[in-house]
Design a protein around this nucleic acid. Structure first.
Length: 599
DNA sequence: CGTGGGAAGTCGGGAAATAGGAC
DNA sequence: CGTCCTATTTCCCGACTTCCCAC
């Protein structure tokens, strides 16, 4: 890379040219890195392959079921009853959840009981006919005691377990992809249990069955050492498909969907995809005003489908809504996004709180997180919405002439690679950049700068509706922090008093010793007031963060190069913004970004 | 052209585990 | 320096978007 001029190098960085990028962290080994990208640069566009060599050890299965000791009993209708191993295992899943609210839910109980009965012997089946006559409390107590015992283990025992986990991680947690050892994201097969689902899920409580080697499809390269199935078993299939990125897959029994084992976010294959995502969003930035002009124009179209498309796109752009695919009714929780909004989710107010044309949105979004917002829109949008609502029932679609596929097809015509979700990425990232510019000043100290960063991050989280339940210990931890602040304040005034006294001493004594004492006291006051300021900033930050989750936007929506550039420009260590895992994921950005990067 | 379904990959909050700081 | 508690990190596992293909 030495022949590369500085200028060229910088240009490569800005363009995000991966040719000269190596996974961050360790020093480059001689003659190693550039090779990594060569074939990729040459072949990726033409044939769509994702790798050319892939070797791994396959998945790690959860331990087999261990029957309960005889003293732990299950009671039916008040009488102790020994269950067959199969039925007992499923019963333990339920027993473990007794503390949870959802064991009180009708659907959960009904689904569980139905699936449980399938695992019973015919004898058990005829005896156990009602869930409410089942008493799992001994089992429940047993598991509580077990986890308590785990906590009480000696340091040596804990150390041993840790070492064993590390051994498994080293053996199964990595693969080799194209001459690089890469970390695997989820190399453990999910253990069996009861399906929960999020929100009001019609399948909650159903049995998620144990995955066997015979369910597993292995994907690796032909010329690799194939993973061995556990003794006495065989894989469902071993295939060699380099058009996909997964190493292992199986079909899950609740929704019948496919699950995968894929690489960690720090891997080349994920990092590159991530980078590409932000490059697409940056391309949108260049033409977004044109697109906006067009959809505003389309609000007046003669065609209903065009008007609906234009208003939906306006929502996606302005409110950062998700696309909103249609979902199978009865198979999933009732949640919606933009295209699947129904009449019941929207209310129109010609006047509200001194604003004109207010749209009130209230719907269950992804993961059944509530989206609630009141927003003033342009007259034309408002009139269109009134039109869309005419002669419709609560359950009818707001955009009856639109779905995500139509919308995305339209977007694809406006820009290569443009889809609904690109708007979310774009608006999130541009908001961060703007907010950082607005909120931070180079005169601020580090804690203040970090507060500003978090506030910018919060603006994005609010935009994307990343809410969380206030942490259970929120009030307490807030109170603790306040106590600390009060103590620090006392400390400060005491220190100030001492300083004053020392000054007085110095004035009368006028000797070296008392002068030095003044200096020491001065330093103490300074130190303490700095600590106090830090605590106060922390308190503000925490309070403002009560119901906001920053993680998701930071990890998935904010171009890391914005943060890296900001850190460099303002002299904030990157560690203050990204923890270790995040730095690994964003290694590409940390490596290639200059302080003058613009999204 | 729409539609329906499968496949692959990204996004998501909460719980569990671990690290780190106070005592 | 050990213990305990809190804060942060990691894991878990589900939910969604997009693409693609058959009809």
């Amino acid at each position: 890379d030495r022949e590369h001029s500085h200028k060229e190098h910088k240009r490569d960085k800005e363009r995000g040219n991966w040719k000269n990028y190596t996974t961050g962290g360790k020093k480059k080994a001689k003659n190693e890195p550039e090779e990594k990208w060569k074939w990729w640069e040459e072949e990726k566009c033409t044939d769509g392959s994702k790798w050319r060599f892939l070797e791994h050890k396959g998945p790690v299965f959860p331990p087999p079921y261990e029957p309960l000791p005889d003293r732990v009993r299950f009671y039916y209708d008040g009488k102790a009853m020994k269950l067959s191993p199969g039925a007992e295992e499923v019963a333990t899943f339920y027993a473990k959840m007794l503390d949870h609210e959802y064991t009180t839910k009708d659907i959960f109980r009904k689904n569980f009981f139905k699936d449980w009965r399938k695992e019973m012997t015919s004898e058990e089946k005829s005896k156990i006919t009602e869930l409410k006559k089942c008493d799992f409390t001994e089992m429940h107590e047993y598991f509580k005691a077990q986890s308590e015992a785990r906590k009480q283990m000696s340091k040596e025992e804990k150390q041993k377990i840790k070492e064993e986990n590390e051994r498994i991680l080293q053996e199964y947690g990595y693969c080799v992809m194209d001459n690089h050892r890469e970390r695997i994201g989820n190399f453990r097969i999910e253990p069996p249990g009861l399906f929960r689902g999020r929100g009001d899920h019609p399948k909650m409580g159903k049995l998620k069955r144990r995955i066997r080697p015979e369910d597993i499809i292995i994907n690796c390269s032909k010329d690799s050492v194939h993973p061995k199935a556990p003794p006495g078993t065989r894989w469902k299939e071993v295939r060699h498909d380099n058009k996909v990125t997964w190493l292992v897959s199986w079909t899950e029994n609740i929704q019948g969907s496919i699950k995968y084992i894929m690489l960690n976010p720090s891997s080349r294959i994920k990092g590159e995809k991530d980078w590409q995502k932000y490059e697409t969003a940056r391309r949108l930035k260049k033409i977004v005003e044109r697109i906006r002009a067009q959809y505003r124009e389309d609000w007046r179209s003669k065609e209903m489908r065009i008007r609906q498309r234009a208003v939906a796109l306006y929502f996606i752009d302005k409110l950062a809504l998700r696309a909103g695919n249609e979902k199978d009714e009865g198979e999933t929780a009732d949640t919606v996004g933009c295209c699947s909004l129904r009449v019941e989710h929207i209310r129109l107010h010609p006047q509200m709180d001194g604003q004109d044309y207010v749209v009130e949105l209230d719907f269950p979004g992804k993961d059944s997180i509530r989206y609630y917002n009141k927003v003033s829109v342009e007259k034309r949008v408002f009139k269109n919405l009134q039109l869309f609502l005419e002669n419709k029932q609560a359950k009818d679609d707001l955009f009856d002439r639109l779905n995500t596929s139509i919308l995305n097809k339209h977007l694809q015509e406006l820009m290569d690679g443009l889809t609904a979700k690109v708007f979310r990425t774009y608006n999130a990232s541009i908001t961060l950049q703007q907010q950082l510019k607005e909120l931070t000043s180079s005169d601020d100290n580090i804690p203040e700068k970090i507060l500003s960063y978090n506030r910018a991050n919060r603006a994005v989280a609010v935009l994307c509706n990343h809410q969380r339940a206030p942490p259970k210990t929120f009030e307490k931890s807030m109170h603790n922090l306040q106590t600390k602040i009060d103590e620090k304040k006392k400390q400060l005034s005491a220190a100030k008093k001492e300083l004053k006294a020392a000054k007085a001493d110095a004035k009368t004594l006028r000797d070296e010793k008392s002068k030095r004492a003044v200096e020491t006291k001065k330093k103490a006051v300074q130190r303490i007031s700095e600590q106090l300021m830090k605590l106060e900033v922390q308190a503000t930050d925490r309070e403002e963060n009560k119901q906001i989750a920053l993680g998701t936007s930071k990890l998935n929506y904010l171009d890391p190069r914005i943060s890296v550039a900001w850190c460099k420009k303002l002299g904030v260590p990157i560690e203050k913004i990204y923890n270790k895992t995040q730095r690994e994921k964003f290694a590409w950005a940390i490596d290639m970004t200059d302080e003058d990067f613009e999204f």
